Amino acid sequence: MRVVIAEDSVLLREGLVRLLADARIETVATAGDGESLPGLVAEHAPDLVIVDVRMPPTFTDEGLRAALAVRERRPGTPILVLSQYVEERYATDLIGGGTEGVGYLLKERIADVAEFIDAVRRIAAGGTVIDPEVIGQLLGRRRGDDPLEALTPREHEVLGLMAQGRSNGAIAADLVVSDGAVEKHISNIFLKLGLQPTQKGHRRVMAVLAYLGRADT
């Protein structure tokens, strides 16, 4: 796997390079700002881009805008956005362009190296990984008329794990239930969100978008 990293903190940037190298993941280029990221991606065509949200010169959303520019110029490029704090808008802006190969994690997750490397590999393979704290905040502010209110607590758990990019088997293992039980929960989620088998678009993706407040359900 080949990776491009955009992170203004030299210490964190070099730490990521070493951490990835230990997992046999090659960093082909690095940047200390968001402006140069699209050019580096065009030059190296990496399997994954890791980018900090807040970068020079204003330290607001330069990294996110660079990530969106990469996805616009090279659709399907897997992107992992790192953030110091939970910022829901950045997560929903990123995932609004499609959930395949997208990740949004708090920087503190890097400390759990095994989990972080697993997330990196899943995103590069086309999966979706959204930080549990972001999901928790989004869930906590749902309106009473939201269709997600019809879901049971267990269905909320399943959909939350789907938003983190977990497969059915991984969800079953996390919840200590059978694969069949997970499939039943997912079917109920689709039904309650009005996502029919014949509806255009991938129902799993559309369910995650609804969960993150970006889909018109």
Rank of each mutant, 00 (worst) to 15 (best):
P38I: 03
R54G: 13
D179N: 14
L212S: 04
D33F: 01
R89M: 14
R109Y: 05
V129L: 10
R214Q: 14
A181P: 11
G194K: 04
E26D: 14
L175D: 05
Q199I: 11
I5G: 06
A66C: 05
E133S: 09
G15C: 12
P38L: 00
T77K: 00
L40Y: 03
T128Q: 03
I189R: 00
S178Q: 04
G194I: 04
L209N: 14
F116A: 09
R65W: 08
A111S: 15
A42M: 05
E26P: 00
A119Q: 06
I110K: 08
L139E: 12
E115V: 09
D8I: 02
G97Y: 04
S178C: 02
R109P: 08
E108M: 07
L48R: 02
V176P: 02
R166D: 10
V28D: 04
G76M: 07
A124Q: 03
G213V: 08
V49L: 00
A150M: 11
E88M: 05
A215L: 15
D22N: 11
E7V: 12
T60M: 09
L159Q: 01
T60C: 09
Q164G: 12
Y104M: 06
V208M: 09
R65V: 12
V17P: 00
L11Q: 15
L11E: 15
I171C: 09
A173T: 12
A111G: 10
A172Q: 11
R142E: 12
H202P: 06
Q196K: 15
V134W: 00
V4Y: 02
H202D: 14
Y104K: 07
T58M: 09
R142A: 07
R24Y: 10
G63R: 06
R154F: 08
G160A: 11
V70H: 08
P153E: 03
L105S: 11
D93R: 13
A215T: 02
D216H: 15
E100R: 13
D146A: 06
L64V: 05
D216S: 15
I50R: 05
E7A: 12
T60P: 04
R2H: 10
V158E: 11
Y90V: 13
A111N: 14
P78A: 09
S187R: 13
P38K: 05
A45H: 10
T128F: 00
D216A: 15
I95R: 04
D112C: 00
E149S: 15
T99N: 12
D8S: 12
R73C: 08
M206R: 14
S178D: 09
D93S: 11
L105W: 04
L37I: 04
Y104F: 14
A31T: 01
V134H: 00
P38N: 09
E183Q: 13
E157Q: 12
R154N: 09
L48T: 00
V28A: 08
V17A: 12
V3G: 06
F190R: 13
E100D: 09
A172C: 12
E35C: 06
G169C: 01
D93P: 02
I95V: 10
R121P: 09
V205P: 07
E14L: 15
H202W: 07
Q137C: 04
D179C: 08
Y85R: 13
A29K: 03
M162W: 04
V81F: 03
N188F: 02
L148C: 08
